[in-house]
């Protein structure tokens, strides 16, 4: 099972998520046939934190092998609102990986956030919700939710917050994160464009004298353009990504949702 969680592109050439296990023969002797409870439904997600906003994004394609099961299956969910349409929610969860686990995880986290809200009379902070999500994931350490989750919202100071997770609950707060099938395609782009990795002040010198470009948070419109560019790139190079781009922008005024077309090929 370990191979399933591997995101190591060195294991095999083109890094399709369903092709990431080495083709080794099963050991001789005792063998067991078992139902394989997991599958990979492809797709990709992305989140960027700004000074006073957070952008969450994901494509809407749902795949199974080379088949497209659905062209519109959202990976972004508003969490912890008090109504069915979640219009007063303040947190967004994105899940990618095994869709059935993603659905189950979303419903559990949503129920927990709702209970918190009813009991305490206030919405859960992203920080608390982030820790709780980690606990939920780790509770299933030996039969994990096969999902890469990202949680987005605004922290207690109103700054954009993005928390990213591995399937068993290890998490950290980051400026930006890409998850899922095209994570390895999008993440380096984000490193360069959000955290200005490998960008230096022109003419500042050579070797150790080189000065890094000063890091500052992106504006909202810069962020949205970056997201669209990242996905357009991923769609071009990854067969499991495409159809539609769902984007949610969390600000102090609430959550705005945008739906953009992506290539359907």
């Amino acid at each position: 099972m370990a191979a399933m969680f591997s995101q190591n592109p060195l294991m095999n050439g083109p890094n399709y998520s369903f092709n990431d296990a080495p083709r080794t023969a099963a050991p001789e002797g005792a063998r067991q046939h078992r139902f394989d409870p997991y599958t990979d439904n492809g797709g990709s997600t992305l989140a960027i934190a700004g000074a006073d906003f957070a952008i969450m994004a994901g494509d809407t394609r749902l795949t199974s092998g080379y088949s497209i099961n659905s062209r519109y299956h959202p990976k972004l969910f508003k969490i912890g609102g008090t109504t069915a349409d979640q219009k007063d929610a303040t947190i967004v969860l994105s899940v990618v990986g095994f869709a059935a686990d993603g659905e189950a995880l979303k419903e559990r986290l949503d129920a927990i956030c709702k209970m918190y809200r009813y009991r305490h009379g206030k919405p859960m902070s992203v920080k608390a919700c982030a820790q709780r999500l980690s606990t939920i994931l780790y509770q299933k350490r030996f039969f994990p939710y096969y999902v890469y989750a990202i949680l987005g919202g605004l922290d207690e100071e109103g700054k954009g917050a993005v928390y990213s997770y591995d399937p068993v609950g290890s998490y950290e707060r980051e400026q930006c994160r890409a998850g899922g099938a095209a994570a390895s395609l999008i993440m380096p782009f984000l490193d360069n464009q959000v955290n200005f990795k490998n960008q230096y002040e022109p003419g500042s010198g050579v070797g150790h004298a080189l000065q890094e470009r000063e890091r500052k948070p992106l504006t909202r419109s810069e962020g949205e353009i970056l997201v669209k560019d990242a996905f357009d790139g991923a769609v071009e190079r990854h067969i499991e990504v495409g159809d539609g781009l769902q984007m949610m922008v969390i600000t102090k005024d609430g959550i705005e949702e945008v739906l953009l077309p992506l290539k359907k090929d």
């Binding site: 409870p37 599958t39 439904n41 088949s67 099961n69 062209r71 519109y72 095994f98 869709a99 059935a100």
Partner: peptide, 22 residues
């Protein structure tokens, strides 16, 4: 909508199972 043996579910204007999906 569709559901399979793993609980994966989705909807689409048209759906097919098994060979039908191809």
């Amino acid at each position: 909508a569709s559901v399979d043996l793993r609980g994966t579910s989705f909807t689409s204007p048209s759906l097919a199972t098994g060979f039908g999906s191809a």
